[in-house]
Computed example of a mutant assay.
Amino acid sequence: MITRDVAAFLRAARECAPDFGPATARAAFLVSPDGFARAEESARDNRYMAGTGGFDAARALGQHRTLQAALSSVLPTVCFAGDPAAPDGLFPNNVFGTAPGRLVVGRMRHPIRQREAARQDIRGFFRDVVGYAETDLSTQPHACELTGALVIDRARGLGFCGLSERCDECGARLMHEAFGLRATLMFDLAPGEYHTNVVLAVLAGRAAIAWPGGFADVGAVDAIAALYAPHLAILSQAEQAAFAGNALSASADTAWMSAGAAAALSAANHGVLEGAGFVVRQVALDAIEAAGGSLRCCVAEVY
C-alpha cells in the first residue's frame, strides 16, 4: 500500500515483520567528485549548497577517497569515475538504487542531473557484471529522486517518501513499485526542504534519526516515533544543519555520518544510537557538504 493516511500506514506497518530482506546493503558504490563545483541548477532548490567560493575540489576529492576507504572496512565499496559535466554526480543515491536483483534508475528534476542517469558504465556494470534487471524511471515525466526522496526500512519493506519539487505523488508511486515495498507513507516536506534524507534516516530497520522541522505534516513524525521509539534520535535544528540526519547504517552495528554531524550530535542522541546497538563512525566531509549533501548522499547501496 502507498498512502498519505498515517493511521492506515501504521496499521499496515505494524504487521510487517523484519523479514523483507537484509537490513543493510551487501556492497556500495560511490562516484568520484571529478569536476567538483557549484551546480547552479541544483542550487535553485537546495538551500544547503555553499556559494561558488565555498568549493575546494582537491579537498573534496581527498575526503571522498577517505570515505571510500572507511566504508570498505565494513562492506565492499567501489568507486566510479566522475564526470566534470555532472558536478552533482558524487551523489549517486539520488539517481541509482537497488533491490535484490534489480537496478532502479531515477528521474531527476534538473537537466544537469538527468545526464547522470544516462551513464552506461554504471548501467552496464549492473546489467552485464552483476546480472541485475533494470527498472528505468528516468524517461517518464515525474520527478522521483530515489533514496534522496524515499527513505527505506529495508528490513520491513517500509518507505517514507517526502514530497517536494524533487518527487511528486506519481513519482513516489513509481518508486514504491520499483523497490517492491510493502507500505509507503507519503508526506509533504517543510517548505525549503528538497530531500527526505537530510531530515530522516532509518538505521538497519531498528532505529531512526529525524528532524521534525523538516516535515510539513507532524503526523508523519508521529508515525516514525510510533515505529522506532525508544530508538529514535530527535534532532535539534543545529544538529540537522550539520547533516546529522544524513546518516547511514553500512552494517548492522555501525551508524555512519560526517565528522561535523557527529560533533554536533548531542550526548543524548549519541546515547539513543548506542542503546540501539550502533557505534557512530565518522568521516570528515565538510568540503563535500559544500555541494548540499553529506555522507548518505554519497553512497549508493547495493542490495
Rank of each mutant, 00 (worst) to 15 (best):
residue 2 I to A: 01
residue 4 R to G: 02
residue 6 V to C: 02
residue 6 V to P: 07
residue 10 L to P: 02
residue 13 A to G: 02
residue 15 E to C: 12
residue 15 E to I: 07
residue 16 C to I: 02
residue 19 D to R: 05
residue 21 G to D: 07
residue 23 A to N: 04
residue 24 T to P: 04
residue 24 T to R: 08
residue 25 A to W: 10
residue 26 R to F: 14
residue 27 A to W: 13
residue 28 A to L: 08
residue 28 A to R: 07
residue 35 G to Q: 01
residue 37 A to T: 08
residue 37 A to P: 12
residue 38 R to A: 02
residue 41 E to A: 14
residue 41 E to G: 06
residue 44 R to N: 05
residue 45 D to K: 01
residue 47 R to Y: 09
residue 49 M to Q: 15
residue 53 G to Y: 07
residue 54 G to T: 00
residue 55 F to Q: 02
residue 56 D to P: 13
residue 57 A to I: 05
residue 58 A to S: 15
residue 61 L to N: 10
residue 63 Q to W: 08
residue 67 L to A: 06
residue 68 Q to W: 15
residue 68 Q to H: 11
residue 70 A to V: 13
residue 70 A to F: 15
residue 74 V to T: 15
residue 75 L to C: 09
residue 76 P to L: 10
residue 78 V to G: 14
residue 80 F to D: 11
residue 81 A to I: 08
residue 84 P to K: 12
residue 88 D to H: 15
residue 88 D to M: 13
residue 89 G to Q: 04
residue 91 F to W: 09
residue 95 V to M: 15
residue 97 G to K: 09
residue 101 G to A: 08
residue 102 R to C: 13
residue 108 M to Q: 08
residue 108 M to Y: 12
residue 111 P to M: 03
residue 112 I to H: 06
residue 112 I to N: 15
residue 113 R to T: 05
residue 114 Q to A: 10
residue 115 R to P: 03
residue 117 A to E: 10
residue 122 I to S: 03
residue 123 R to D: 06
residue 124 G to W: 12
residue 124 G to S: 07
residue 124 G to C: 07
residue 125 F to L: 14
residue 128 D to L: 06
residue 129 V to I: 14
residue 130 V to S: 02
residue 135 T to E: 12
residue 135 T to Y: 00
residue 135 T to S: 10
residue 135 T to N: 01
residue 136 D to Q: 11
residue 143 A to I: 09
residue 146 L to S: 12
residue 146 L to T: 10
residue 149 A to N: 14
residue 150 L to P: 11
residue 150 L to E: 09
residue 151 V to M: 09
residue 152 I to K: 06
residue 154 R to I: 11
residue 154 R to W: 15
residue 155 A to W: 09
residue 158 L to H: 05
residue 161 C to D: 12
residue 162 G to W: 08
residue 162 G to S: 14
residue 164 S to Q: 14
residue 166 R to Q: 12
residue 169 E to N: 13
residue 171 G to Q: 08
residue 173 R to D: 08
residue 177 E to V: 11
residue 179 F to M: 04
residue 180 G to H: 09
residue 181 L to W: 14
residue 182 R to L: 05
residue 184 T to C: 05
residue 186 M to K: 14
residue 186 M to I: 04
residue 187 F to C: 02
residue 189 L to T: 10
residue 190 A to M: 00
residue 194 Y to I: 05
residue 194 Y to E: 02
residue 195 H to G: 00
residue 195 H to P: 00
residue 199 V to R: 05
residue 199 V to G: 04
residue 200 L to H: 11
residue 206 R to Y: 03
residue 210 A to V: 15
residue 213 G to N: 03
residue 221 V to H: 04
residue 222 D to F: 07
residue 227 L to I: 00
residue 228 Y to D: 00
residue 229 A to L: 12
residue 229 A to G: 02
residue 232 L to Q: 00
residue 232 L to V: 00
residue 233 A to C: 01
residue 235 L to H: 00
residue 240 Q to V: 00
residue 243 F to V: 00
residue 246 N to K: 06
residue 247 A to L: 03
residue 248 L to E: 00
residue 250 A to W: 12
residue 252 A to N: 11
residue 252 A to M: 13
residue 253 D to M: 01
residue 254 T to Q: 13
residue 254 T to E: 15
residue 260 G to W: 04
residue 261 A to Y: 09
residue 264 A to K: 05
residue 272 V to T: 12
residue 272 V to N: 05
residue 274 E to K: 15
residue 275 G to W: 02
residue 279 V to I: 15
residue 279 V to F: 14
residue 284 A to P: 13
residue 285 L to D: 01
residue 289 E to P: 03
residue 292 G to Y: 06
residue 295 L to K: 01
residue 296 R to E: 02
residue 298 C to E: 00
residue 299 V to N: 01
residue 303 Y to H: 12
